[in-house]
Design a protein around this nucleic acid. Structure first.
Lengths: 218, 218
DNA sequence: AGAATAGTGTCTATCAGACACTATGCA
DNA sequence: TGCATAGTGTCTGATAGACACTATTCT
């Protein structure tokens, strides 16, 4: 009869105008939700902070460091882990969310205790093949990102080092699930530029028509 | 060498145009931060959810139920509780914040394990007489409330059942630490009314001049 | 020249802040 | 009647969305 603390990380990325989340498949031999898909995560190491554990989990799956990673919410309803009924151990999960650029989509490496890892479109999430309360955690993370992108430059985490105006616009559109008027977004982009959030980068991007200027966050 | 989970609750109220937070004084015999002021809080009961523990702590201090109570953030840096160095038990705190109307200011009852309880103006918080990392927790809560009041009707938790336009305006001013233009606030108030968040209540309030209409949230 | 995409200028509706004005109760 | 506070109307500047227009590159 004890208490365990774990972290789960909702890892987001955007490509093809679509917000994706990284899921891992639980072992078929697992004693809870075998074969189900779940968020990357695991128990805290001895004396480890939740922040550190989340960064460790993120690094195990993506080999990335220095990504945007922020605490989301702590889920601790008794019964959220069915194994509690066997061993009486309540499992409290401190959930995090991370934003990674799309270059990562091929670099995912399943860690030891999972069978596979894949990116899933947020529009195709189900409730019957996700383990634990991870459907709720993911939805909470989606809501958070949708809300926060309006007032914080978190899109920085989702784009490559350099990007065009239209590329950034598509990231916003994918996250919010709505399309932005071109002129409105350009105005917003320009404000970010005058605010010093974005600056012009050398070079340009070939697009088929007039080459686009590229920018970067700073 | 274990892991313990506790909750801490930042309880806010507003009167005299000033945002206050409720603090309790730790026993002079305590083995950590004796005599210091701290947030109400404590360990989870066996099999208890963090949400429930927070509601229980809030009720122990204020005798209030059904208040606005929301999870804030989870603090788990090793070393945040100095007793960890003695017994090796890492203490993770799931922090909550609550909003209570000013009628509560006299109803506070110190619970068993604390010496006293008092309301402290958020402008008079120190770092040298607050226990643990509670200064950081309180500041995090202040930032959250300041941000959230702009897009969510959380002021509901801070006002009495009925209130005038000016009373609500002063709550907003106290929370944000800035004064609102009268006409701007009235427009905002009117929008809340047409949005159905606020409705007119019977009666009026004597003020010395023209009596003011009173309203209520619904 | 024409297709394709980048980027600009302008019109309009909406909203915030400022402020002058009116309304209503009390001494 | 005058004071104090509640509440309204209006002007102005900033901003979002729509959309027509110009710019630049490639074929």
């Amino acid at each position: 009869m004890g208490l365990r603390v774990a972290v789960d990380v909702v890892i987001f990325s955007v490509w093809d105008r679509d917000l994706k989340v990284l899921l891992v498949q639980r072992s078929p031999d697992s004693n809870a939700f075998p074969g189900f898909w779940a968020l990357p995560g695991g128990a805290l190491d001895q004396g480890e902070s939740p922040d550190h554990a989340a960064a460790r989990e993120l690094n195990e799956e993506t080999a990335l460091e220095g990504c945007f990673l922020e605490q989301l919410y702590t889920f601790g309803e008794p019964g959220r882990d069915p194994r509690e009924f066997d061993n009486g151990d309540q499992v409290i999960s401190v959930a995090y969310y991370a934003l990674v650029p799309q270059e990562m989509r091929r670099l995912v490496r399943p860690s030891d205790d999972v069978v596979a890892a894949k990116w899933v479109s947020c529009s195709e999430l189900g409730t019957d093949w996700l383990a634990f309360d991870h459907d709720v955690i993911i939805q909470t993370a989606i809501d958070r990102v949708k809300g926060k992108i309006d007032y914080a430059p978190i899109a920085r985490g989702l784009v490559p080092d350099t990007f065009t105006v239209m590329e950034l616009r598509e990231v916003y559109a994918a996250v919010k699930g709505e399309s932005y008027s071109v002129s409105t977004f350009r105005r917003r982009f320009k404000r970010m530029q005058t605010d010093g959030v974005i600056e012009e980068a050398p070079g340009s991007r070939e697009t088929g028509g007039k080459p686009a200027k590229v920018f970067r966050f700073r």
